[in-house]
Design a protein around this nucleic acid. Structure first.
Lengths: 244, 244
DNA sequence: CAGTGGTCTAGACCACTCG
DNA sequence: GAGTGGTCTAGACCACTGG
């Protein structure tokens, strides 16, 4: 009796078996896999299920499929580093480095949406915002300067004692049930001006990487905007670029 | 003469009809779609085909599906700009701006792979490379400074009269059948030194965006490495960041 | 031409969410 | 329990690639 003790989907099990066979050398890099029909028979699943497994593996870059030719094993990726295309909060970024994340609040003030900000956040011009300026530290050394602009419609629903010290992502999720799902980031190289240099303990004109980001929730509703100035000696930004 | 008969897959037609219905307001942003079974009936296709259409639309961020709840229409994306996560050659980037791409060759010399380069390109240390330095122009103004390192094993297979003026991507594909599929890019903000400033007709210490890229073919084999210095006043780099 | 992956169907059951 | 999307099957035909 063939029982599936695992309640995980069948195609994931197939995917794992394929991964193992590639890892242990049953199928070498560059080699062609057997036809889908044969693989399906081999694993004892329907071709649709096998194809779902192949689809995931192709999406992960393990395989390449070519119509009319076959399915091939790719070279293993040497670099598995997280790229900037994966969104995480500044707090998470610092913790990923294995360092302790901290915050120093520099400013907390009212602001009004100008034309471009209003457009980005889908608000009327002049809508009230909270402008939050913070220095973010990694092991007590300043690593990022963050300016967040959060619409008042959200901040006024936060409890009085809400803490601005940690991750905005966590605050929005735990207090308001808003899950930040993605962001559009604009990448700008910039030099530290006198003020910024003093705040971040770096020399004037040091190069910084500025990320201007609009954050969206699960439904694609823009939630807040921020400008983050990263010290390039603390962070190593990568991105996977794919041809279309 | 070719009349466009519709050979396109059924699921793409279904996808287009859905997109239209969303665009014309039949299904509003935030609204829940009918169940998959009903939609399949409505379009006269099997549920599997309908689901393929939904899968693509979800991948493109148009829809959100939640098991046990339903399928929902997302807010339309305001920004449809191409992001840096899509790979294109410098030539393509300039042409996308609607400007004329040109090249000025600054240097063409032999080089040997040092440890990090050898590791990146999966070559032995000391392997011979061609180092190609070029200024790339947009409407005859210098926009990018490119240094490409291409293993000799590829360049020696190129014809004598090969032109280094245009896109390396095109050259590799047309002459060697190597299709560059993706790249890993490291993003570094940097200031122009005296030499760079003179070459690019900018002021010393102007901020530049440096992209250090390893390019891979379809099978994941590293092909060549390059360093591109972009003038931020010519290029606007964006990236879509997604939470995992 | 033969062989490959790509698409499609009809029907079934499972897993999750909510009232 | 009722309703949703998630998974799975068996079989069929189509479209592309190469010799």
């Amino acid at each position: 009796m063939q029982v599936r003790q695992d309640n995980r989907p069948l195609y994931l099990l197939v995917k794992e078996r394929l991964e193992k066979m590639i890892a242990d050398g049953s199928y070498q890099a560059g080699e062609q896999l057997p036809p889908e029909a044969e693989l399906a028979r081999l694993f004892g699943v329907s071709r649709a299920t096998l194809r779902e497994a192949l689809r995931v593996l192709e999406e992960e870059g393990v395989l390449t499929r070519k119509q009319g030719i076959g399915t091939f094993v790719n070279q293993p990726r040497a670099l598995v580093e997280r790229g900037i295309e994966e969104l995480f909060s500044v707090t998470e970024s610092i913790e990923k480095l294995g360092q302790k994340a901290g915050s120093i609040i520099v400013g907390l003030e009212q602001a009004q949406a100008d034309k471009s900000m209003a457009e980005a956040l889908n608000l009327p011009v002049g809508a009230e915002l909270l402008k939050l300026s913070r220095l973010r530290t990694a092991d007590n050394k300043v690593a990022v300067y963050c300016i967040d602009y959060i619409p008042k419609i959200y901040t006024e629903r936060l409890p009085e004692n809400a803490s601005w010290d940690g991750s905005l992502f966590s605050l929005l999720e735990s207090q308001l049930g808003i899950y930040i799902e993605q962001a559009i980031a604009q990448i700008v190289p910039i030099n530290a001006d006198e003020n910024m240099a003093k705040l971040m303990h770096i020399r004037k004109n040091s190069p910084l990487l500025l990320l201007k980001q609009i954050h969206f929730d699960r439904s694609g509703v823009p939630i807040f905007y921020c400008e983050n100035y990263f010290r390039p000696d603390f962070f190593n930004f990568k991105v996977i670029r794919k041809r279309k």
